[in-house]
Design a protein around this nucleic acid. Structure first.
Lengths: 214, 214
DNA sequence: ACGCTGTATCGTACATGTACGGAAAAAGAT
DNA sequence: ATCTTTTTCCGTACATGTACGATACAGCGT
């Protein structure tokens, strides 16, 4: 069956978009993160600057596309990581996540530290989580720990708490590199072990049901 | 003794600077956070736009000055808060910090989520912490808990870990308001209780000495 | 072949942060 | 008092993101 005209057009559009992403990627590699400007990017692919806006809503959107590529790689690396014990498998998620954030601060920043305007297109929570391969693998491995009796409670709540701890750790390290955290790896390990050890001792209720008693 | 010429000049300079900060504050109140531009600010105080740069290194510097005012208020509010139990006193720090972050996301963002270029002028760790009234009160109250036998270990390490947990919690809530954390307050309380309960069960070593074993 | 409609592309224009260098004023030296 | 140096102030200019609206073009029905 030949592609419909509609579909062919969409495909062409997607190709041009990814051509732009590629060009943006090269630009960043060659001139650094702040060297990526709309004008340079447009010139690189032979378009007028404003034409870029046919494929991306704004500059953030481009940075986001770049970062998502990087995070895709991270998610694959985590999934391919061998893991005997379920808790160890969970630790792998945390430490790889941390290593990625420390090694790619720009990407980490654009995805996790910049203001989000749009709740991605009326998607539901579940869709949003499925869409984020990182949260997906995190929840899966938490579920494995729960199934193995190593953790107890609502998997999504546990995953979210781990996310909060991990994100706090990494974003502080990124934002305040001169603060005396000691060795970065050691601090990451400490926080990771701390959170997992603490979670192991309690039954975690789902998120919405938490009673406010403070 | 009359003021030296040197001192008088400095004072005048400081006055003009704080006049600029005041004007900036009003501008933000009237037109919102993104309504604060160098040109508007300069016009407001009757200067040319470039003159602002005699008092602030760049726009970030202005935003920072604004935010520091707000954080000063927060620190005072925390210090004035009555606290019977030392653990409760510590919880007050966490919850007030969270309430501030959720209520003043712009200020929180500029202080805790934007790239820092300068390790503040070759200051030592201790000076830096003394300079930050928030970290100061946090460490003090952790010390009180340690003294009361409620927590065990190195106060600065404990404080830093609490900071990481608190910051992770708040920055996620700010950055992903559409993620289903459930009730924001409840999530903050949960993370706060979680961290404190976990810390109560272990002896926390100083930061630099943590062995890397992951 | 011919108009109609939607879309892709882009030229122009504007607001913004800020680099650069000059002018003016103040401080200090002689 | 005059000259020198430093500090303050600002006019101009540039790069950047992007709003707005025009233009050209592709697909389609007639």
């Amino acid at each position: 069956m030949p592609l419909s005209v509609q579909t062919r057009r969409e495909k062409q559009k997607a190709e041009l978009r990814s051509e732009l992403v590629d060009a943006a990627h090269k630009l960043v590699q060659e001139e650094g993160y702040e060297g990526l400007t709309i004008r340079k990017l447009a010139k690189r692919v032979g378009y007028a600057p404003m034409s870029v806006y046919s494929y991306f809503a704004d500059k953030q959107d481009i940075l986001f596309a770049l970062a998502e590529d990087a995070f895709q790689t991270l998610a694959r690396r985590i999934e391919d990581h061998p893991a005997s014990d379920p808790i160890e498998a969970l630790k792998v998620v945390m430490t790889e996540y941390a290593a990625f954030g420390l090694g790619n601060p720009n990407e980490y920043r654009t995805v996790f530290m910049t203001e989000k305007v749009k709740p991605p297109e009326g998607k539901t929570f579940a869709e949003m989580q499925e869409g984020n391969p990182l949260m997906k693998v995190l929840i899966e491995r938490v579920e494995a720990c729960v199934a193995a009796g190593k953790l107890k409670g609502d998997p999504r709540a546990i995953a979210t708490m781990l996310w909060a701890v991990g994100h706090g750790t990494i974003s502080l390290l990124i934002t305040f590199p001169f603060y005396p955290f000691g060795d970065q790896q050691a601090f990451v390990t400490r926080m990771c072990d701390f959170a997992l050890a603490a979670l192991a001792t309690q039954d975690v209720p789902p998120l919405s049901e938490t009673p406010a008693n403070c």
